[in-house]
């Protein structure tokens, strides 16, 4: 019998190395049934906004919503759905469950979760929703954050997002520093050959290292892209400017931590 010599099991080892070396991991959701419930919610809210009654094919409806709304109406639709979906108390626990196994291996099993789930809708040819190349840590966010991305339709190439792999990211940050006279489009042109498009199908999720340069471009795939996203981090890692309570809340505190926190706080803090 071969006894283990590592504290990580083989799956943890594989996911950790993938995340470190590639900047992301992609996996199947924990429960396709729960994912369908999430999509039903979004489809229902979109249909209500547009004034459609029954949606027989959710994927077809979402993929082709650009035939029903204009780019000018998009932000209002997105804001309306985002507000209403976040009022559903089950959405965040379900979102977490769909990716919990990989999240626990990559970020930890005592997690803080973003308090609002975000929705992105990428209409074909719409240049207003382009997210220029960026990395969250460049804007002062905690480098301990992990982004979870959950597509509601199959998303390939420009219908999805791009990520610059770790090896190619080494020099780009220093090039962006100071007043270089370059815009973010110049930065994208500089890295375009090296970026990797995140092809993620419905039924899968993506966890990626948002300290790596990423973003999206004009959707040239002819169908509308839909995805939910949310950030997670280890609950006791630094928060930087996405503050506890305002942006993050603890979701999976363990019993021993609760005991320790009560002990420590009652012993140290007095009004």
């Amino acid at each position: 019998m071969n006894l283990p010599t590592s504290f990580y099991d083989s799956e943890e080892q594989f996911l950790s190395e993938s995340f470190l070396n590639n900047g992301y991991v992609k996996n199947s959701v924990f429960s396709p049934l729960l994912l369908d419930k999430v999509r039903e919610l979004i489809v229902g809210l979109a249909a209500e906004y547009i004034g459609h009654a029954v949606i027989r094919d959710p994927a077809d409806f979402l993929n082709n919503i650009h035939a029903l709304i204009s780019p000018q109406e998009l932000n209002e639709l997105r804001s309306s759905i985002t507000k209403k979906m976040n009022q559903e108390k089950w959405l965040r626990p379900v979102f977490y469950q769909l990716a919990s196994n990989a999240l626990n291996m990559v970020a930890g099993n005592e997690l803080a979760m973003q308090m609002q789930i975000d929705l992105s809708i990428q209409l074909p040819g719409d240049e207003n929703i382009v997210s220029p190349v960026h990395a969250e840590a460049w804007s002062g966010d905690s480098p301990f954050e992990v982004a979870a991305w959950l597509p509601l339709v199959d998303c390939q190439r420009t219908k999805s997002l791009f990520l610059l792999p770790p090896a190619a990211s080494q020099t780009i940050r220093s090039e962006c520093g100071g007043s270089t006279g370059k815009g973010s489009d110049d930065v994208f042109k500089r890295i375009e050959r090296d970026v990797q498009w995140m092809d993620v199908d419905y039924g899968e999720f993506l966890l990626f290292n948002q300290n790596l340069p990423h973003g999206n471009r004009i959707n040239n795939e002819g169908k509308t892209g839909w995805a939910l996203s949310c950030r997670f981090k280890s609950v006791f890692s630094p928060y930087a400017h996405n503050r506890l309570g305002e942006y993050y809340e603890p979701i999976t505190l363990r019993a021993a931590t609760r005991i320790g926190m009560s002990h420590q706080i009652s012993g140290e803090i007095h009004d």
Partner: peptide, 8 residues
């Protein structure tokens, strides 16, 4: 919970 983590 938020307060306890913040204070810890």
């Amino acid at each position: 919970d938020i307060w306890m983590v913040y204070q810890t």
